[in-house]
Design a binder for these strands. Structure first.
Length: 659
RNA sequence: GGCCCCGUAGCUCAGUGGAUAGAGCAUUUGCCUUCUAAGCAAAUGGCCCCUGGUUCGAGUCCAGGCGGGGUCACCA
């Protein structure tokens, strides 16, 4: 039983005995006392006035006396207004420290036999990973680690979007313009190689599109539809207009001539919006790409072979990026194998009345009573839509792993989709339906605005990783702390520091919030950053190495002399702050798991590191005033190091021994 | 327009309904003869978007506005 539980139950008992009232546990739960007051934990007595006809301070006084008498760990108390501040005896804190100092696993719960599946990353296979994926990956990985620490058996999966029109664009571009080039022959990282052909396709398509805009057909369409577009209260009215006079944005592409000068603006707007329709209805390249998709669906051997080859390149590239980020997966699901799933579930839904069929044969679910809408589950031609395969995939995964919880780490633009998906699975009566959770996270913005792959403003994941490491290298040069180490070790340290900066910068923000990613700030090594926390750890390691050199005892505290258990001196405020911070670690993990929120752990680690730096600056460890104090502080160091290492590990951040 | 999310210092972000709302960055100023100064301390900086409501108590909960974003396909 923890001290907070102890205080809580004692408070409930006290209120019962003193006033004959049973209060809810919540009202008896102690909070951490604010720094400006003396005490470790605080009970708020205002709510008790409801049944006690006394002023809050008087109640606090009586409750305090009762608790001191009945809970030996509580030494004394003070009352400020209605706040009862309890002071826990140093012996308790020293015992607590003894308990955890040597425990590498402090904070981790024993296995609870429950299983959770976490899906994250889930990229398309037509281009390399970018900053958005990085946020996703860090959240997914960190949640996995947090759930493991909370005692769960975790299965990490992703669904690879390996089919569809996008990859066909890359395939087609390679086939038409690639001239047999390979990642090896061009010396390009293989996922980037494929991505380059995707970009090439878009460029060629753009050229084709502008050429076409000169045609009479285009002119007719423009004149017939431009008014309609204008009258619709559509997004295009507010979108920035393509500047037809600015040739630089179109590179070498010749600009199609609008009919009249005054129509330039309308012309630009219209054909920006019309692009998709053009691709589907008029484009030669579009037709070829769609034909390729049809051949793929028909299982044409040559197409399949090309598809395998290009996806193979992409996977090799992804794997490299995952390795740099230090993440992994237990199982990959591929859309090419799941996109036809889910139809049997529709039968089930139709049979139990959860779904209905329209006259044209399409299948729907009515979710209006769940404040959602009618949702199509199967097209009238009998083919699947996106959600159909998600239904099937969920079922497949449950059969594969039997996880009682399934977490989907996916951007918040898909909030509605997941509401519909989960609600639909509930109506099907699937046994896992109540354990589904969409870990929805906000988009990542750049100082220059939103990331748009079409406008080439995305931040590439590999570039970013290289950048933060090189920044760490520059900073390290100036410090000169690690120059004496072997080259490989130096590189390992720089990698850890750079990645810590990047990862912490992203993971410290609450997932739900849209975040601003300033590349300059992401490589900061000072302040509220990953390296700041690593530095606390490194300082500890350095002290512990020196302590070992001197032969100071650190860890065999069980046989500690009695003066340590019955110390002459009191715990210093800086020490107390650290211990009480350590005490909160399991709670931080618990909260993070319950809320699916790694930022809780990130902020905890920062607070702990901050408290350590203050302690380190204010108090001498190796030259402490007594052996007792020295040993106590070494214990404290050991415990802080363990917790920092564990905590950062939960964020996917490694700790260097020196920096 | 319907629904969902966000709004806290100049900027980036914390803040289980509790006491005088906190960090970092930026600006200014101190602290390396001492265990790694990627550190510490201090100063400056706030109608917690607005208006009501619930409560002994609201940045936090509720309602209504305002601002920003997302989403409302027989797309994925």
């Amino acid at each position: 039983m923890t001290i907070t539980d102890l205080i809580q139950s004692a408070t409930i008992a006290a209120i019962q005995e003193l006033y004959g009232e049973t209060i809810p546990a919540e009202q008896a739960s102690p909070t951490v006392t604010r720094k400006e007051f003396e005490g470790d934990f605080t009970i708020v007595t205002f709510p008790f006035t409801r049944f006690v006809k006394k002023a809050p301070p008087a109640i606090a006084q009586e409750l305090g006396e009762f608790l001191v008498k009945n809970v030996p760990q509580i030494n004394r108390f003070n009352v400020v207004q209605g706040f009862l501040n309890l002071v826990i005896g140093d012996v308790f804190w020293r015992d607590f420290l003894l308990e955890i100092a040597d425990n590498q696993d402090f904070g981790r719960q024993p296995k609870n036999g429950r299983r959770v599946m976490i899906e994250y990353c889930s990229p398309n296979t037509n281009k390399p990973l970018h900053l958005g994926h990085v946020r996703n990956i860090l959240l997914g990985w960190s949640c996995s680690k947090i759930y493991e620490a909370a005692g769960y058996d975790v299965v990490k999966v992703q669904i690879v979007n390996d089919r569809g029109i996008a990859i066909c664009k890359s395939m087609l571009a390679w086939q038409k313009f690639g001239e047999g080039a390979t990642p090896e022959s061009t010396g390009t990282k293989s996922d980037h190689f494929v991505g380059n052909f995707y970009v090439l396709f878009e460029q060629k398509f753009q050229v084709e599109y502008f050429e076409w805009q000169k045609s009479q057909v285009a002119r007719d369409i423009f004149e017939n539809r431009v008014e309609i577009i204008k009258n619709e209260k559509s997004k295009i009215e507010v979108e920035p207009v393509m500047d037809l006079n600015d040739t630089s944005t179109l590179s070498s592409i010749e600009i199609a001539n609008p009919v009249f000068d005054s129509d330039k603006e309308k012309w630009g707007k219209f054909f920006k919006v019309y692009k998709n329709t053009y691709f589907n209805e008029h484009s030669q390249l579009g037709r070829e790409a769609r034909e390729m998709l049809l051949r793929w669906e028909a299982g044409d051997p040559a197409t399949i072979e090309l598809w395998r080859k290009m996806n193979g390149w992409v996977y090799a590239g992804f794997e490299e990026t995952y390795r740099s980020l230090g993440v992994s997966f237990d199982r990959f699901y591929y859309e090419s194998q799941t996109y036809l799933l889910g139809k049997d579930l529709l039968e089930q839904g139709l049979a139990n009345g959860a779904f209905y069929k329209k006259d044209d044969g399409s299948v729907w679910v009515d979710l209006t009573d769940a404040k959602l809408d009618h949702k199509l589950l199967l097209r009238s031609d009998g083919t699947s839509v996106y959600i159909t395969q998600d239904l099937g995939t969920a079922q497949m995964r449950y059969r594969d792993f039997g996880a009682e919880r399934m977490v989907y780490v996916v951007g918040d633009e898909q909030n509605y989709h997941f509401q519909v998906l989960f609600e639909t699975l509930k109506r099907l009566g699937e046994p896992y339906a109540d354990g589904l959770f969409h870990l929805s996270y906000g988009m990542v913005d750049l100082p220059t605005g939103k990331m748009k792959s079409r406008e080439g403003t995305v931040v590439d994941a590999d570039d970013l990783i290289a950048e933060v490491i090189s920044e760490a290298r520059e900073a390290s040069k100036e410090r000169g702390e690690i120059v004496g180490l072997p080259k490989a070790e130096q590189e390992d340290i720089l990698r850890k520091i750079g990645l810590a900066a990047l990862k912490f910068h992203i993971i410290k923000v609450h997932p739900k919030k849209r975040m601003m990613f300033d590349p300059k700030e992401s490589v900061d090594l000072q302040g509220q950053t990953g390296p700041h926390i690593q530095y606390a750890y490194v300082r500890i390691k350095s002290v512990l190495r020196k302590a070992a050199d001197f032969g100071f005892r650190i860890s065999d505290f069980d046989s500690a002399p009695s003066e340590i258990r019955n110390p002459k001196s009191e715990i210093e405020p800086q020490e107390k702050e650290l211990i009480s911070q350590l005490y909160r670690f399991p709670e931080a993990i618990e909260t993070a798991a319950a809320e699916y929120d790694p930022s809780t752990v990130a902020n905890y680690c920062y607070d702990l590191a901050k408290a350590f730096h203050r302690f380190f600056t204010d108090l001498s460890i190796l030259k402490a005033e007594s052996e007792e104090a020295r040993t106590f502080r070494l214990q404290l160091c050991q415990a802080v190091a363990n917790v920092l290492k564990t905590g950062m590990d939960l964020l996917g951040i490694e700790m260097p021994e020196r920096m």
